[in-house]
Design a protein around this nucleic acid. Sequence first.
DNA 1: GTGGTCTAGACCACG
DNA 2: GTGGTCTAGACCACC
Lengths: 131, 131, 131, 131
Amino acid sequence: MYYRIDVSGPVPIYEQIIQQVKAAIATGALLPDDPIPSVREVAKELAINPNTVARAYRDLQKEGTIYPNRGLGLNVSQEAPEKCRTERIESFQENVDRLLADALRNRFSPETIKRVIGEALKKLPTEVTVS
Amino acid sequence: MYYRIDVSGPVPIYEQIIQQVKAAIATGALLPDDPIPSVREVAKELAINPNTVARAYRDLQKEGTIYPNRGLGLNVSQEAPEKCRTERIESFQENVDRLLADALRNRFSPETIKRVIGEALKKLPTEVTVS
Amino acid sequence: MYYRIDVSGPVPIYEQIIQQVKAAIATGALLPDDPIPSVREVAKELAINPNTVARAYRDLQKEGTIYPNRGLGLNVSQEAPEKCRTERIESFQENVDRLLADALRNRFSPETIKRVIGEALKKLPTEVTVS
Amino acid sequence: MYYRIDVSGPVPIYEQIIQQVKAAIATGALLPDDPIPSVREVAKELAINPNTVARAYRDLQKEGTIYPNRGLGLNVSQEAPEKCRTERIESFQENVDRLLADALRNRFSPETIKRVIGEALKKLPTEVTVS
DNA sequence: GTGGTCTAGACCACG
DNA sequence: GTGGTCTAGACCACC
């Protein structure tokens, strides 16, 4: 499993790693007790600073998404899938709310908002996805 | 005309000022050749440093949104309303696209996306607004 | 005699007034002992602050280009035409030198410099002028 | 790479830094993806305030001349060389035009203009330079 | 009164 | 180590 990182762009690298690990867990690509890629491996693969990967894993560990297996690396915790899934949907809802709040602050009418979003939704692919 | 600033939060103060000036121009609250509030006035009103306001105004000036009337202050430029309006709608479209792209990256199905957005849209007020 | 002022642009208004008075003197449009337009008249005509005109006249007076005629206004001094003419040509030479120095600092080759200037010179009008 | 700054003089320090970075890019001294000297380094070297350097770099970034490599510094963008080169020659042409327009406003005859410029051109060095 | 520039020094996020 | 933001306070030119 490898991450896709956008070094430019506003999202910090460590944040992208966190999100991608969570996405892998939420979609079942990573199951409880599965090992996640090692810090050294990821850092080398993505040509980024190992500290950055370590920070992402440290944060994941702090919130209980992964746990250390002494000398063997980091594994996905039992409660991670459930947590990632709810977290993910809540985060999306928050993003939607923030988008609409921002639109209202900019004095867009509900009609305009609905029209713009509707047009964007039409462009959505119809491939098979999860949840 | 006064600005409403959220000093905590991730958006820089100068960025908030920029956006609010543009919003005022886009909605017609500020017309071409109108003077905008002076640096010192705003700084005092919002209890922030004049440099922060000056920075916002400097950026607006470099974009051509406002122009200096030397010794007298800064005025809204002729092209500003048109520019702010198109910029605003484009920015909103980008936000929508970014939201959907993020949702797809998180493997949400189009059905889920539409459902969540649909629910959020229902909560929109129906008051009279601009555009 | 009226001045043509560019309120936007980098040159201060008082500076523009100074230059135009001097140009009028250098070209003979204003002769020694001729009165120059009054502060009030100019300020009204150009819709600018009388203080600005007063400052220009004060500077001109300081350097001896004009002199006050108690209660009657300001007149062109005897030595003004000579002074303005030499000053004008020297100022032009300085501008040329500054232009070339800047071009060299930007690593333009003498060939490029000559070519660009040559092309600009071709566009010069051939009307009858002074000096 | 170091900058040469004239702290007195009318040109703002941050403006001088901007111009020198652009000149280095235009002449190929800085290539795309090259890192530019860090804010702190430059500030120390020139004995000026880091904020002043940061301001110059911020402007360059907004123009797209440089881009941030988060946590690592600022690099020259891909489009920068092309942009700087055309910008530089256009700027020079504008300066020439402005000089001639000013000369005409001062009622210099084309002959005088050509003579003064011709004399200045003779003093140009003949060393090998770029473009 | 206006904006523009600069200094000094602090704090933060990121790698 | 890097840049980004903000504060505090000074000085300047211009109107």
